[in-house]
Write a protein that binds this DNA or RNA. Sequence first.
RNA 1: GCCCGGGUGGCGGAAUUGGUAGACGCAAGGGACUUAAAAUCCCUCGGGAUAAUAUCCCGUACGAGUUCGAUUCUCGUCCCGGGCACCA
Length: 852
Amino acid sequence: MESLYSPEQIEAKWQEYWDEQKTFRAEENSSKDKYYLLEMFPYPSGRIHMGHVRNYAIGDVVARFKRMQGYNVLHPMGWDAFGMPAENAAIEHKTHPAKWTYENIDSMRKQLRRIGLSYDWEREFATCDPEYYRWEQLIFLKMLERGLAYKKSSSVNWCEDCQTVLANEQVEEGACWRCAQPVAQQQLEQWFFKITDYADELLEGTDILTGWPERVLAMQRNWIGKSYGCEITFPVADRKENIRVFTTRPDTLFGATFMSLAPEHPLADELVTDQQRDEVDAFIAEVERQEKTDRISGEVAKKGVFTGSYCTNPADGRKIPVYLANFVLMDYGTGAVMAVPAHDQRDFEFARQYHLPVIVVIQPPGGNLVAEEMTEAYAGSGTLVNSSDFDGLDNEVAKARITGFLTEQDAGRRTVNYRLRDWGVSRQRYWGTPIPIIYCASCGAVPVPEEQLPVLLPTDVELTGAGGSPLARHQAFIHVDCPTCGQPARRETDTFDTFVESSWYFARYACPHYDKAPLDRTAVNNWLPVDQYIGGIEHAVMHLLYARFFTKVLRDLKMMDVDEPFTHLLTQGMVCKETQRCSEHGWLFPEQVKEGCCSFCNQPVELGRTEKMSKSKKNVIDPNQLIATYGADTARLFSLFASPPEKDLEWNEQGVEGCYRFLGRVWRAVSDNIGDIQGAAAATAPFSEAATDLRRKTHQTIKKVTEDIDGRFHFNTAIAAVMELVNAIYAFPSRQEDQWAVREALETVVRLLNPFVPHICEELWQVLGNHQSVEVSGWPSWDKEALKTETITLVVQINGKVRGKIVMPVDADKNSIEAAALQEQNVQRYIDGKQVRKIITVPGRLVNLVVS
RNA sequence: GCCCGGGUGGCGGAAUUGGUAGACGCAAGGGACUUAAAAUCCCUCGGGAUAAUAUCCCGUACGAGUUCGAUUCUCGUCCCGGGCACCA
C-alpha cells in the first residue's frame, strides 16, 4: 500500500465502486427491517455551503450506521426546486428559471456526489418536474372536494410602483426592496387550506411524538395556541348590531370600561358617527400604511380612535365607548376585545393615554389596589370586587360562574379558541405549481377536470421584473374554455406556496416513478413514517407543521395510512457565517464580493451577523475549496467533529488541519503495522497485560461509539473516542505474540469510522485483507468480558473536596474501601485530630468523609 | 412585549442519572529526527502560591439556596442567540 494518505485517488475510486455496485439502493422486497432516513431536501441555489455539508454529513453517518447494523435503508435526495430566487436570477441574468434551476441541480448533484453521500439516486426528483407537481394539483382537487381548500379575501403587501405583490422578505422597513417605495396593503382573493380543521389532532400529536425535541413540540403547541375562554355579546347601543368578543378572562367582565375593535372589523365603518368620521378615516389610513412596517420593526405605540358609538356590557347594562385600536388583530378571536384596563397591560396603557376609566375588579391576595394609583395592570389571580353578585369569589371560580350567568342570559357561551390560522397558499408568482382552477363568468371557479392534469407551467414566458405575473400576460395559458359550460374562461394565474411541495415529498420518495396516482399506497405504507428526519431548527414550526397536516389529509384521502410523517426529528443548529448583502442585490456569496463591494453593482456591501468573523475574510469556508484541498473525508470529519449537531456553530477553518492529520495517522497506523499483523497468530490465553489493555480499549470504544451515534447523535465525542483508540495503538509496545490485538484494534477503527469517513475506510478495509465493502462487514459489537477490569481507582474526598485516590479490587466491599480511604496518606493529614462524622460511599466512584 | 434556547481554558468543545471540571482536537511553547525544510514522533499547556510532576488556594456569566457533594437541581440578576401572527 501507499505509505502516504492521498484522498484524491481513493475517493473517486470508491465513489465509482458504490455507483457500479448500487451499494445504496433501497430494496423494495427485503427480509430486513426498513429504516427510512431523510434530510430536508435543498433548494438548488447552485452551490453547496457548509450548512449543507453539515446537514448531509450528519444524515450520512446515520444512514451508513443503520446499513451496517443490517437495516434496509431508504436514503433519498431530491430538489425543492420552485421558488423566488430562480425568478430573481432569471430577471438578473436574462435567463429562464427552468434553465437556471436545472443547471443548478446538475451542479449541486455533482458537488453532493463528490462528498460521497450514500443516496439512492434512482429516486431523485425535482418538485418543478411536471411529473411531480401534476400530483400536487390532483391532491388540491381532492382537498377542494372535501372542503379542505377554499377561497377568501386576504391582504397582501403591494408595491404600487412595481405593480406587484411582495413577500414579507421583499419588504424592507416598510418599503419595496427594488424601488424603495412604501408598501401598502391590498385585498386579494386567495386560496386557503383548512389546517384549522386539524388543529386538535395536530395538538394531540405533540404528546405522541416522543422522538421529537421538546422545544420543537413546545413551539408547535404555542403556534396552535389552543385556549379556553368565553365568547360574550355586547349589544351596540341604540342599534340592532352586536359586537362579539372572545376573552380568556370572563372573570374581569365587570371591569370592562371600553371596547376595542380591529380597524378592519366589519362593524368598524358602520359604527362611526358623522362627527368622528374624519378622525377615524385618517386613523384607518395610517394603520393601513404602517401595519407591516410596525410588524417588522417590533414595538408599536398603542393608538386608537373613538368611533362615536357605544355598546352595552351585558353584565350590568353599562354603556361603554367603542374604539378602534391598532393593536387589535382581525385574525385572532373575533377581532374585538373587551378592554379591562385594570387587569390587562395593553388596555391599561391605552386607557391612560386616552383618559378612559379604570375599574379594579380583582384584588390580589392581601392587596388593596386603587385604580388611580396603579402604574401597571394587575394580571394575576385574586378575589372579585366591584362585580355585583360575584364579589368575594376566587377569580378562577368566577370564570365558570360568570360564563354560566352569560349563558343563561343568552349573552355568551364557553368557547375554545386557536391561534392557528388557515394556510394561505396562493402566490402571485410564475415559478411555482399552477393552481388548477378555471374562472368562468357563468360557472364561477371551476376545478380543472382530473383528466386534463397536469396544468403545465408554460416555459415560453418572458421575465422582465415589470409589474404583474408573467402568467397573466401569457395569452395561450390564460384563455381556456370552461370545462362545465364550454364558454370562454380564464385560468387561475396564481401558483402554490412552495411549502406545499415540501409538505408531501417525503411520501413520494417511496414511489418516485409511480404514474397512476400521487402515491402508491402499498409502497408508502411500507416505507413511511420516516424513522429519522434531520434538518435546520428554522423549520421548527412552518414546514414541520404543514408536513404533519398534509400527512393527515393524505390519510383522510385514503392515499396512505400513517398519522404522523416523522417518528424521530433531529434539529441541527444554524451554521453561522459571515453574511454580506448589497442593498440592490440582496445576500451575496463571498466570491460575489470584490474589495468590500458588490460585484454586480460595485456598491459597498453591508455586513450581517457575527461581526467578529466578518472582520477577517479568511474565516469563510467554501466546502468545494475544502474538498479540493483535503478531500471529502476531511470535510465530513471536520463538520462532524466541530460540535454536536443541535448546536449553532460559527465555522472557522482552524481544526481542518487536525482532522486531515488524524486521517493520515489512521492511514499510517495501518501501513506501519500491516506487515506484522498479516502473519499474526490468533489470540491465545493467557493474554499479556498490554494486549488485554488494548483489547479493553477496543471494546470500550465500540460501546462508546455505538451509544454516541445511536439516538444521542454525539458524533464529536464518538470521533474523539476513536482518536483515543488510535493513540492507544500508537502507544502499544510491538511484540509479535500480541499482534492479534493490534489487528483487532485496527479493524475496529476502520469499521467504527466508516459512517464518518467512508472512502478511506473502504480502502483500508481492503488493505486489511477483506474483499467486500466495509459497508457489508456489519457493525462491530462489544464483548462485555473484555471490558472488565480487576482494579478500580476511587476518589477520596474530605467534605466534598478531592484529597486522595485509592486503587481497590473491583469487588472490594464497603468496609475495606472505607478502611483504605481512612488509611490514605494525604487523607490522614485532614482527619488527624478531627472526628469523622459520616462516610458516604458511592460504588465505583468515590468515598466522601464528612469531618469536623 | 411573548415563546424557545444558551453562557465552561487563548479557541471548538467534554463531563450520559447530583459524584475526580477541562476528554478529544486546534492554537501556543519546548524537544527528537533531518545537511535543511516539510512531514512525523514525544513532552508541557485554566489562573495563582511554591524549587517542585509534592501540596494548597481560586475557578463552569453573577448572587443566593438545597445537598455530604452542584457545570448539572431551585430562586433571583445580567448578557447572548433564535422564533413570533401586539394572541386579549
